[in-house]
Design a protein around this nucleic acid. Structure first.
Lengths: 364, 364
DNA sequence: TTGTACGCGTTATCAT
DNA sequence: ATGATAACGCGTACAA
């Protein structure tokens, strides 16, 4: 099996600390120096076979002398496994994905896996290009927050490689992999009901593109909540803004558009942290008082939320929890050789009330 | 030479969009199917040699039929180059490093390089472990914000691989690589003078560990500025707190300690964004009014700065600018075969005044 | 226990 | 122009 020989590495590298030259020595060089065959060296390194004590000694001496360390690329070629997994997300500079990436890195590092990070900016061609690259690089698995525009290819990939989706679902029945996300519909429902209970009726929603399952589900939860007060959210609903999840500026534009309406909303729900920051930025710059003039909610916590000039109410979407689940699924799939049936994991989104919500100034 | 054959990939992968099975076909299988030798297939793929039109046709047909794509691992073995670079930083979940990572990714992706992200948490053993891993994986270069505790090894690595340092210098004369950072001394001087000009005298500094060159330089700039008003900053200086750059909580502890002193400071300079957020958090929770009770400055912008309840003055440290420079240096070194002499690039840190600074309530 | 030889998927060198 | 074959560095049957 293809495991990582940490103990050997430690032994090897300890000798390299004192500023010695790294020769890029090969196993052959070590064998020659120690006067043994490459097979013996290999056995010493991987310690999976019996080697006499004196030869072990000699080999280790040569390893230290030559500052030898194994070439992982060659091993990968042999085992068709690289001990690295690809992470394809829309944008690593988004605080949510930062924490997600960090958590995933931590978990998989425990199993000696590395992480190749790829940011797509939600562009189909970038995603495609990265998928190709990772496929060619023979990563052992792919974690992907997909753009939703390469479903067929990803489905194909899922037949040959462990795939864990995050945040955006693939509906193809032949897709083979796991899915982890927040419980979008319920979370959005909770958030909307929170506003309704404060007396709001003209509630606006600033969403991401509906081609993303998360956006669609959050819209559905919103609609279900609005239905409880007899308001139908359909194509004609006036307070619906579809922006871009990865661009807080689209939240700013949304706020501007919504608040310019003849009968502006008394509350806005931004469907992720980026959009929420954008909405907040608009209100801050324009001197719109929150919550007096407008109540604001966010799906997921805004970074540095507790230090903001006002705290929107939000439902939790903890990237650490998500990351742990995602990484675990991935490692399980790799270990089980991708034989699991599709799994779906939804994380609870519970309400955290903030100072950004109050009763509307002029209820209808 | 080892280049990436993008055009070929496009051609190859276009046929895979419709949910076909990815067989992991090899060049041998393609050769067999097309009735040619593997050499010919290789030539068609890399189009570096003349092949007759009909054979090109046949090979491409087989490639499409078998959904063949090249195994990068095998190529890497041949070329001793993987088209990937390692990024070793203290913590990818820190907003500053997020933006840095994103920028670097963008730039190197243009040259078809990938990025393996490694977070060390400023721990020596983690850094060591990641260095080993990247070395074994035969990355083409390493960008590192080092812990400062593996200088000898990194120096060794720099003799065999392009290395670009970021934020933390290695002083060994035999180190071979580039260094990019903010102009720490000058930036810190600017920030301190800003407070002095507002009338502050009891100015506290919340710094990272001085083993990091950035922390040492910022301390030096602070000391130089204080000297202009005849205050010596030495080991006996009472308003010196050494915390942890990567842990905002240590900023909170610092604020608590400093403000509990008999003659508390009238201003605090936090030497990075994390520490500043921690200081701010303490003040916010304790109801300490800023800037009335205390003025606050930060080296680098706090994330979502414009939405905070108060805006510390800060000097710029743009991760995007830094990232561009770092990535460029790396690509140049890779292209030039590591033959450059050591380069050092300092980015200007200019002052942005915020609402978090005013004259002290009770000047001495 | 130890060594020889082959194969992993490619590319490059030599023949033809 | 095309094909056979030797490398790249490693692990492991198989032989000894």
């Amino acid at each position: 099996m293809y495991t990582s020989k940490v103990s050997v590495w430690v032994e090897i590298m300890d000798h390299q600390k004192a500023g010695v030259v790294l020769h890029n020595a090969t196993i052959k060089a070590v064998a020659k120096d120690a006067g043994v065959s490459v097979a013996t060296v290999s056995r010493v390194i991987n310690s999976n076979c019996k080697v006499s004590a004196e030869l072990v000694e000699a080999v280790n001496k040569s390893i230290a002398k030559l500052n030898y360390y194994p070439n992982t690329v060659a091993r990968s070629l042999k085992f068709d496994s690289t001990l690295s997994i690809g992470l394809i997300i829309s944008d690593i500079s988004n605080s949510f994905f930062c924490f997600l990436a960090r958590t995933i890195e931590d978990v998989i590092h425990g199993d000696n896996y590395n992480m190749i990070v790829c940011s797509t900016d939600n562009q189909q061609d970038k995603e495609l290009s990265y998928l190709r690259l990772l496929l060619g690089k023979k990563v052992d698995g792919i974690i992907i927050n997909t753009t939703g525009m390469n479903d067929e290819l990803i489905t194909s990939v899922s037949h040959v490689l462990p795939v864990v989706l995050c945040g955006r679902k693939i509906h193809s029945p032949s897709f083979h992999g796991d899915f982890v996300d927040s419980d979008n519909e319920a979370g959005s429902y909770t958030l909307t009901r929170h506003l309704i209970e404060h007396g709001h009726r003209r509630i606006a929603i600033v969403n991401g593109q509906r081609i993303f399952s998360s956006a669609a589900e959050r819209l559905a939860g919103f609609a279900r909540a609005m239905k409880t007060i007899g308001i139908a959210v359909d194509e004609g609903y006036p307070y619906l803004f579809e922006g871009n999840f990865t661009d807080s500026n689209s939240g700013t534009l949304a706020a501007k558009a919504l608040l310019s309406l003849p009968a502006p909303p008394t509350a806005i729900i931004a469907m992720n942290n980026e959009l929420a920051a954008g909405v907040l930025r608009y209100c801050h710059d324009r001197g719109i008082h929150i919550p007096q003039d407008l109540s604001i909610c966010s799906y997921g916590k805004i970074f540095n939320n507790d230090l903001l000039y006002v705290q929107p109410s939000y439902v939790t979407m903890d990237p650490t929890l998500l990351g742990h689940k995602i990484a675990s699924f991935m490692l399980e799939r790799i270990a089980g050789k991708n034989q699991h049936s599709n799994r779906e994991m939804r994380l609870d989104a519970h309400l955290v009330k903030g100072t950004g919500v109050s009763a509307p100034a002029s209820p209808d």
